[in-house]
């Protein structure tokens, strides 16, 4: 077994605006099962950060416990990382975000880490609109403990040992919509063409961006009867493709009218939705919820950007926190002296 990637790279790798190649965003070699969907998500995050020309040292990766939460080791090897307690990544992310609002925060969680042990923290993260990208690598089972059904396993889905799941699965995308998330997307690890631009858009979004990614467990949930296998997901897939164009770049592709909608983010970058249904609007929360329900009833798996509020107000703005990171503030700012104290006191009289 190979424990390290060879040092050689393609001599003609393209470079991004920072002069980095995609390999500069690599992490250690994965120790997950060969063919795990999570590795594809890792590659999509790597590619997204490369394409968006984000400085690796300006990114922080946060995770909890589980197969999914191991993955930050396998991408962005030159970025910051915090592997927290099971289900407690949201509180670490909240603290980090208010302490240093200038970093890009990418949280990686799983269906267990988010929908079971971490559910309590997860909904508060949404409620507070912490400025981060939160990706759930969702395989509907506990792969690390030999494949028991998780809280997101679909009703009737067969486990590897043949038992049908008797409970309705939690739909994390619907939950995030209900709870008021400002960016909700859903995707499939085997569809990088959609997942990469969605991650780029999520990173550009100011506020809490949630992406639920079906990521097949190749060892415990990739059999006939599993609703989250590669083939079942592909069979049911109803994907709404999208493109992400950062503000710096000019738009090169031309789309036919009626087949594309454009959504502009706060920083001027644009998300293009292709082949979107005529009546589909990314700013209609109710419609998004209805679409999810409808596709479920039709035994379809709807993926794409489901909802976006481009003008959302994140936690730092809501709490009116200092505009600079704590580590940037010196003695003068933190301890402004008795004259300022006096003036505050005067203001309260």
């Amino acid at each position: 077994m190979s424990y390290a990637k060879p040092n050689f790279r393609h001599p003609r790798l393209p470079k991004n605006a920072l002069g980095y190649t995609v390999s500069d965003y690599d992490g250690a070699i994965s120790t997950l099962c060969a063919g795990c969907g999570h590795d594809s998500i890792s590659a999509a995050i790597r590619n997204a950060c490369f394409l968006s020309s984000i400085q690796p040292h300006r990114i922080a990766k946060l995770s909890g416990i589980g197969c999914s939460s191991k993955t930050p080791t396998y991408f962005l090897g030159k970025s910051h990382g915090f592997n927290s307690v099971h289900g407690r990544m949201p509180s670490v992310a909240t603290g980090a975000s208010v302490a240093n609002r200038d970093l890009t925060y990418i949280g990686i969680s799983g269906d267990g880490d988010t929908a079971s042990i971490g559910m309590g923290q997860f909904v508060h993260l949404i409620r507070r609109n912490v400025n981060m990208t939160y990706i759930v690598a969702n395989n509907g089972c506990y792969g690390l403990t030999k494949g028991q059904d998780s809280a997101t396993a679909d009703l009737g889905s067969l486990s590897k040992y043949g038992a049908a799941n008797q409970f309705e699965g939690i739909d994390l995308a619907s939950l995030a919509l209900l709870q008021g998330a400002s960016f909700v997307g859903r995707s499939f690890s085997g569809d990088k063409e959609q997942l990469e631009p969605m991650i780029r858009a999520a990173i550009a979004h100011k506020g809490f961006a949630f992406i639920d990614v079906v990521s097949p467990c190749v060892t415990f949930a990739n059999h006939v009867g599993s609703t989250k296998s590669y083939s079942a997901t592909r069979t049911q897939l109803d994907a709404m493709p999208l493109d992400f164009v950062p503000m710096r770049e000019e738009i090169r592709t031309q789309f036919d009218a009626g087949t594309s909608q454009a959504v502009t983010l706060h920083d001027g970058s644009v998300i293009h939705l292709h082949k979107a249904r005529d009546d589909y609007r990314t700013d209609d929360r109710m419609a998004a919820l209805a679409s999810l329900q409808e596709s479920k009833e039709n035994a379809k798996f709807l993926t794409g950007l489901l909802y976006l509020d481009p003008n959302s107000q994140d936690l730092n703005q809501t709490l009116n926190l200092a505009s600079r990171p704590l580590n940037d503030l010196g003695k003068v700012e933190l301890c402004p002296g008795s004259r300022v104290l006096n003036s505050i006191n005067e203001g309260l009289r």
Binding site: K5, P6, F8, R9, H10, S23, I29, S30, A34, G35, C36, G37, D39, S40, S42, A43, S189, G190, K192, P216, V218, N222, Y230, S231
Partner: peptide, 12 residues
Amino acid sequence: IECDACSDICPT
């Protein structure tokens, strides 16, 4: 099964 694992890992 088109899981992309080979494409993702290939160092070159």
